[in-house]
Design a protein around this nucleic acid. Structure first.
Length: 270
DNA sequence: CTAATCACCTGAAGGC
DNA sequence: TGCCTTCAGGTGATTA
């Protein structure tokens, strides 16, 4: 069995594919099959509006319409699948965006955590979300300044999305392992050198995941329904009980910030 | 301020 | 075989 959870790389792949496939299309209608998926789409007719720019900040996907935006968060099990004719896959279908050309974009979401928001002010809506981890303006100097201001543990800080956005449980554990950093290390105690190493590892881990078409642990699929390949390259995530690829010590699973966290107890000491 | 807990959900997996 | 419990996890709200 496999599990999911789209993080930055998976959302980036979906954004790129949507840009190629639905940019410029005209919305005909939006149908909700599970009302809670939509947070605030009351009384708004988006019929006739065009999908312009498609962007991403952290794990949020942004579709620019004529006068407003659709913001989509896949959370745990969300999938955006492009349907080009044929029978619609009803299983776990929460919303359908129909286009004037007869195609449609399906929002499937087993756990019902995913959300689609309709907003007019994206800046305001995402104002509490930190800089995207792959934003060129996110530099090691910026990262160092952020860490110096916080007494949070490094894992909690990266999970929060408030300082840096896009990283989730998988890629945080993988980045911390590569940096030989314990997840409970206090953020402001990182040296400049360690901060630089962590910064580089975060970027590398994300870029590697994107080049491997994302990680499919369970439900993640791209818009064509294809799984990713990056799950085969995890060094610690879901490898508890197996040997550390660096030193051979058994990978342990501990709890940090309420999340299952995988570490090598030998390589990642506090 | 940070941290811990819960709620939201479903279904796979483990226990008995 | 089958029922019951546990657990996975992103985020937001609540509590300590």
């Amino acid at each position: 069995m496999e599990w999911i959870m789209p993080e930055l790389p998976e959302v980036e792949i979906v954004a790129c594919e949507l840009r190629e496939k639905i940019q410029g299309k005209t919305v005909e209608s939006i149908v909700a099959h599970w009302s809670k998926t939509f947070q605030n789409l009351t009384d708004v007719s988006l019929s006739g509006q065009i999908i312009h720019q498609i962007g991403r900040k952290g794990k949020y996907l942004m579709l620019e319409l004529d006068y407003s935006f659709l913001i989509i968060h896949l959370r745990m099990t969300g999938q955006l699948i492009l349907q080009t004719g044929g029978a619609i896959k009803e299983q776990h279908l929460r919303a359908t965006i129909h286009f004037s050309d007869g195609n449609c974009l399906l929002f499937r979401d087993q756990r019902k955590f995913g959300r689609i928001y309709h907003v007019y002010d994206v800046q305001k809506f995402l104002s509490n979300i930190g800089i995207d981890a792959l934003n060129p303006d996110f530099t090691t100097e910026v990262f160092l300044r952020l860490l110096k201001k916080s007494t949070m543990t490094i894992k909690a800080l990266l999970l929060s999305q408030k300082y840096v956005s896009g990283l989730g449980n998988i890629y945080i554990d993988e980045s911390l392992f590569r940096t030989k950093l314990h997840p409970l290390t206090q953020a402001n105690s990182l040296t400049k050198v360690k901060t630089g190493e962590l910064f580089t590892n975060i970027k590398n881990v994300l870029h590697q995941a994107i080049s491997n078409m994302g990680s499919t642990i369970s439900d993640y699929r791209d818009v064509n329904g294809n799984m990713g390949n990056n799950q085969h390259f995890f060094k610690v995530y879901q490898r508890e009980g197996k040997p550390c690829p660096h030193c051979g010590t058994e990978i342990e699973k501990i709890h940090v910030g309420g999340r299952g966290t995988r570490i090598c107890p030998s390589c990642q000491q506090r």
